[in-house]
Simulated assay, not measured.
Amino acid sequence: MSERIVVVGAALWHEGRLLAARRSAPAELAGRWELPGGKVEPGETPDAAVVRELREELGVDAEAGERVPGEWPLRTPYVMQVWTARLRPGSAAPRPLEDHDELRWLTPDRVWDVDWLEHDVPAVRDTLAHRGPRQSV
Rank of each mutant, 00 (worst) to 15 (best):
P26D: 05
W72Y: 09
G59E: 14
D101P: 12
V60M: 05
A10N: 02
V60H: 10
Q81D: 09
P69V: 04
W72L: 11
D115R: 15
L35Y: 00
G90E: 07
S136I: 08
A49I: 02
V121F: 09
R110A: 12
G43I: 04
P89N: 04
K39L: 05
W105H: 10
H119L: 04
E56N: 10
V60N: 06
T127N: 10
L35T: 00
D115H: 14
H119R: 15
R22T: 07
P122L: 02
V40W: 15
T76Q: 11
W13N: 13
T107A: 15
V124M: 01
P94K: 06
V137N: 14
V60S: 06
V68H: 03
E28R: 15
D109N: 12
P133Q: 07
W33I: 01
D120F: 04
E44A: 04
V50F: 04
L128I: 03
G43Q: 03
G70R: 02
W83V: 02
A21R: 01
D47Y: 04
L18N: 09
G38K: 08
P42D: 06
V60R: 07
L29M: 09
V7F: 08
P122T: 01
P89T: 01
D120H: 14
E53F: 01
E44C: 08
W13D: 07
E28L: 02
E71S: 06
D101L: 13
A10F: 00
P69S: 07
D113K: 12
R134F: 04
H119G: 06
G16P: 13
A25Y: 11
S136D: 14
G37K: 05
Y78L: 07
R104C: 05
A123V: 06
P89Y: 08
D120C: 13
G9Y: 00
L103W: 08
L74R: 15
A25E: 11
P108W: 05
P77F: 15
G90P: 13
V51K: 01
R95C: 06
E57R: 11
M80W: 00
E102F: 09
R95G: 06
D126H: 02
P96I: 12
P96H: 03
L117W: 06
G90V: 09
A11Y: 04
E71Y: 07
D120I: 01
L106Q: 05
A11N: 08
V6H: 01
A93Y: 00
L87V: 03
D126W: 04
A48Q: 12
E63Y: 03
G31D: 08
R67C: 03
E98L: 14
R104A: 15
R67Y: 00
V137M: 11
K39Y: 02
R95S: 12
T45M: 01
A93K: 14
D99K: 12
V60D: 02
H130S: 12
P122Y: 05
R131P: 03
R125V: 07
K39N: 13
W105A: 06
L29T: 00
D109P: 04
V114Q: 05
